[in-house]
Design a protein around this nucleic acid. Structure first.
Length: 177
DNA sequence: CCCTGATTCGC
DNA sequence: GCGAATCAGG
């Protein structure tokens, strides 16, 4: 692929908008993120603020809370419990006490509640090996996108859409047999 | 491990 | 000029 004026312009635009090199490479197509970075330097475009690392660039737009599907809510007492958990921090494990809101726990554990993931609304070019590739919307319209959530293991889908893609027979027949 | 940008250097 | 390989960092 070569750097036509058009492609260079697009590169400049996207770079100034704060997209990462890999995202730009995906949009341009036919080039690697290294190619993009190399070009950026050759063009003497301003680099990213701090050296190295994730310049918290313009990630996918962050949208409001999921509106977690509330099921049953037993009004328990508004108490908090302290639970000790182990967390990996660098090379060592760190134990820390965490205050847990009991009411929240009760609300979120309910039986039949299925948590529908919040789609990250990724475009085809933004998908990676571990973003959920469940399509959403009509491919013919421009609101078409993919779930984009973190995939479950090596599955092409997140846990939720994985279940939709593969519905075990046992789930559907209750009475039969 | 995932990701980011920066640099180097053979082509 | 180009970009893969490599480096450095979160």
């Amino acid at each position: 692929m070569n750097w036509t004026d058009e492609r260079v312009e697009k590169l400049k635009r996207l770079w100034s908008e704060g997209l990462s090199a890999s995202q730009i490479a995906a949009q341009l197509g036919g080039v690697s993120r290294n190619a993009v970075i190399g070009k950026v330097h050759r063009l003497n475009l301003p680099g990213r603020a701090k050296a190295g690392g994730s310049t918290t660039a313009a990630r996918t737009p962050k949208r409001p809370a999921p509106t977690a599907p509330r099921t049953n809510t037993y009004q328990a007492r508004n108490t908090t419990a302290t639970r000790t958990v182990a967390r990996a921090a660098g090379a060592n494990m760190v134990k820390e006490d965490v205050d847990v809101d009991l009411i929240e726990e009760v609300r979120n554990v309910p039986s039949t509640n299925v948590v529908v993931p919040i789609s990250r609304r990724l475009a085809l070019t933004e998908l990676t090996e571990r973003t959920c590739k469940w399509p959403i919307g009509d491919p013919m319209t421009d609101d078409f996108h993919f779930c984009g959530c973190e995939t479950s293991d090596t599955s092409p889908y997140c846990t939720y859409h994985g279940k939709m893609a593969y519905q075990p027979v046992s789930e559907r027949r209750r009475a039969a047999r």
